[in-house]
Design a protein around this nucleic acid. Structure first.
Length: 198
DNA sequence: ACCGGGATGTTCT
DNA sequence: GAACATCCCGGTG
């Protein structure tokens, strides 16, 4: 990212809380990979054993092992035969609570994102949706387990001083068939990058 | 704008 | 064998 952006990495303690609490606080934070930088504007919380929509609901498996690990790591899964989606693991080890990243506003690295996503028509769609943002930032299962605090694989979450919205958009999670009424989707209301309106 | 269907393969029953 | 935290395209209005 550019030197003009003054940022600070989020510490482990930031993530060591329930996903429902962390999710709205992640809004307006930055996801940084090399020159590619996106501002987080849409997230959903998935809360372990108590949440029927969570991948962790039916216990630990090979795929979801990272969810059960320590907070501050990236959980990347593969779905629909062609898409990846990325979560930030929260809570304490074993709790398996996580926050799905659903949309970013492009802050920097537009050219690299375009190159990673050939054929996409509109720049505004580059990071609009959980699978699109993974594609724009080249996030796949190879990044599963990456430590967002130490940046061990070149991926971090940072704070540039922009506070989370005082009144985030709150609504139902998208694309699930269980626990569809829980209000665990949070947005920066009015952002043009949202996958769906708040 | 909105809707319906197809793509595509890993994971779990 | 079914489900899947999705996306894209081509139809219609």
């Amino acid at each position: 990212m550019r030197a003009t952006h003054k940022t600070q990495l989020l510490g482990r303690s930031f993530y060591a809380r329930d996903g429902r609490v962390v999710a709205p606080e992640l809004l307006n934070k930055l996801l940084v990979r090399g020159r590619r930088v996106g501002r987080i504007v849409e997230v959903e919380a998935y809360c372990g054993a108590e949440d029927p929509a969570s991948h962790a609901y039916r216990g630990r498996s090979r795929r979801n092992a990272t969810m059960f690990g320590p907070p501050g790591h990236l959980y990347v899964y593969f779905t629909y035969g062609m898409h990846h989606c990325a979560n930030v693991v929260c809570g304490r080890e074993g709790e398996a609570t996580a926050v799905l990243l659903r949309a970013l506003e492009v802050v920097d690295g537009l050219d690299e994102m375009r190159a990673a996503y050939p054929g996409l028509r509109r720049d505004r769609d580059l990071c609009r949706g959980p699978a699109r943002l993974c594609r724009a930032l080249d996030m796949d299962r190879g990044l599963d387990g990456a430590d967002l605090v130490t940046g061990d694989r070149g991926l971090v979450v940072a704070d540039d001083g922009t506070p989370p919205p005082a009144h985030p958009g709150v609504g139902r999670r998208v694309g699930i068939s269980a626990a569809i009424d829980l209000p665990w989707r949070f947005t920066v209301a009015g952002s043009p990058a949202l996958s769906r309106p708040a």
